[in-house]
Computed example of a mutant assay.
Amino acid sequence: MPSVDVADEFETIAKLLAPLAHPEWGRGLRDDVAVLPSRPGFDLVLTKDAIVESVHFLATDPLDTVAQKLLRVNLSDLAAKGAEPFGYLLACHWSGRCGWPEREAFVAGLAKDQAEFGIHLLGGDTVVTPGPASFSVTMLGWAAKGRTVGRAGARPGDLVFVTGTIGDGVLGLMAAQARLSLAPERMAALVRHYRTPMPRVAFAPAVGDLATASVDVSDGLIADLAHVARASGVRIEIDLEPTPLSIAAQAWFDDRVDAEAALSMLATGGDDYEIALTCRPEAETALRREADRHHLRITRMGKVTAGQGMAARYGGRVLELNQGGWTHR
Rank of each mutant, 00 (worst) to 15 (best):
M1R: 13
A7K: 13
T12I: 15
A14V: 07
L16M: 06
L17P: 01
H22L: 05
P23D: 04
L29V: 07
R30F: 02
D32R: 14
V33A: 10
V35S: 12
S38A: 14
G41L: 13
L46Y: 00
D49P: 00
S54H: 05
H56D: 14
F57W: 11
T65R: 14
S76A: 15
D77T: 11
K81R: 15
A91P: 00
G96R: 13
P101I: 09
E102Y: 02
A105K: 10
F106A: 01
K112V: 01
A115R: 11
E116L: 13
L121I: 05
L121Q: 00
G123C: 09
T129E: 10
S136Q: 12
A154D: 02
P156Q: 03
F161H: 07
V170M: 04
L171H: 02
G172R: 09
G172P: 07
L173S: 03
R179K: 15
A202Q: 12
A206W: 08
L210T: 00
V217Y: 06
G220H: 04
D224L: 05
L225R: 08
L225G: 10
P242Y: 10
T243A: 12
T243M: 15
S246Q: 13
D258Y: 04
D258T: 03
A261E: 14
T278Q: 02
E284F: 02
V304E: 08
A306L: 07
Q308L: 05
Q308S: 14
G309Y: 10
R313L: 15
Y314W: 15
G315S: 08
V318W: 04
W326R: 14
T327D: 06
